[in-house]
């Protein structure tokens, strides 16, 4: 097999790790709160800017900048819930979509106002690893590993802790949990915080690979939605598997043609798959 194709496939798998992380966050929020955060990828953008500013302007060590980014986005997730989602919680789903869509506009423009449209990077260049004459970017390898660690940590959290169990209970039946002594509002806040933190973690991993600019959310935002829908909205394992399917389509498509066409292919595949499995690939 062609060595570049192998490289493309490996890069696809590595990309899938980060996408899976984002899909998990979005899916968690959808499954529990029943709202789709259209602006989810833009929260990642905010996280990237936080890390960028702390690291380059205030000389905060990268690790602490990243931790601050995760904590900051967790807080941001809570703020988004309190300020935007809570008031429209009982509105029509379309209004909920639009409220977070307005947030998307707001965040992108506000970032433009603060930082301009320049591409910025933190100037950390990680080495390239060579394995059997295949070149793998170390940044992507880290991103993949931490993506998996994040996913496993989320899984354990949901399975093993009290709050995690409560979150799963709300996702299963939001009307009955009140009878079990679970405060629904607190669970919503906790879920938003976790969703935000996952976006923050993704920001740490992406800031190592890509330049930050106000519209970076547009690059992978639509892809994350596709992944979640393909896996079945709210279905975490489905989303996890779908991340790797989509990232492979993009990577292999990019190898045979160009980037835009590989995305066209991915979106078209998504539309067709939706017709084959209208409730997601792994719907029962």
């Amino acid at each position: 097999m062609d060595i570049f194709l192998v490289e493309a496939i490996i890069n696809g798998i590595l990309l899938g790790g980060v996408l899976a992380l984002l899909a998990l966050g979005l899916n968690l929020i959808f499954g529990v709160i029943d709202v789709v955060w259209i602006a989810y990828a833009d929260i990642v953008m905010c996280g990237m800017y936080v890390i960028y500013v702390l690291y380059t302007h205030y000389d905060v060590p990268l690790l602490f900048a990243c931790l601050a980014g995760i904590a900051g986005m967790a807080a941001f997730g809570v703020a988004v819930h309190l300020l935007i989602i809570a008031p429209v919680l009982n509105s029509a789903p379309i209004n909920q979509l639009l409220a977070t869509g307005g947030l998307l506009f707001f965040l992108q423009s506000f970032a433009t106002l603060l930082f301009g449209t320049d591409f910025r990077n933190i100037g950390v260049r990680l080495p390239v690893v060579e394995v059997a004459s295949i070149y793998i970017s170390f940044a992507r390898l880290i991103a993949f590993l931490f993506g998996l660690i994040g996913a496993v940590a989320l899984y354990l959290f949901l399975k093993r802790t009290y709050i995690g169990t409560a979150i799963r209970a709300v996702a299963q039946d939001r009307d009955i949990v009140g009878l079990m002594g679970i405060d629904q509002r607190r669970i919503y806040l906790a879920t938003s915080a976790i969703g935000g933190a996952l976006a923050g973690l993704a920001a740490c991993l992406l800031v190592l690979q890509y330049d930050v600019h106000p519209f970076i959310g547009n690059t992978f935002g639509p892809v994350i939605f596709m992944i979640c829908v393909l896996g079945g909205l709210g279905n975490m394992i489905g989303g996890f598997v779908a991340s790797f399917i989509i990232s492979q389509i993009i990577a292999i498509g990019g190898y045979y043609s160009n980037t835009e066409l590989s995305y066209v292919l991915a979106f078209t595949m998504f539309i067709i798959l939706m017709f084959v499995r209208p409730r997601g690939l792994f719907a029962r």
């Binding site: 307005g102 423009s109 449209t117």
Partner: peptide, 14 residues
């Protein structure tokens, strides 16, 4: 202020 107009626009939409 590039972006200011759209920032206000976005906030008003929400």
């Amino acid at each position: 202020f590039i972006g200011a107009a759209n920032t206000i626009y976005g906030a008003l939409l929400v």
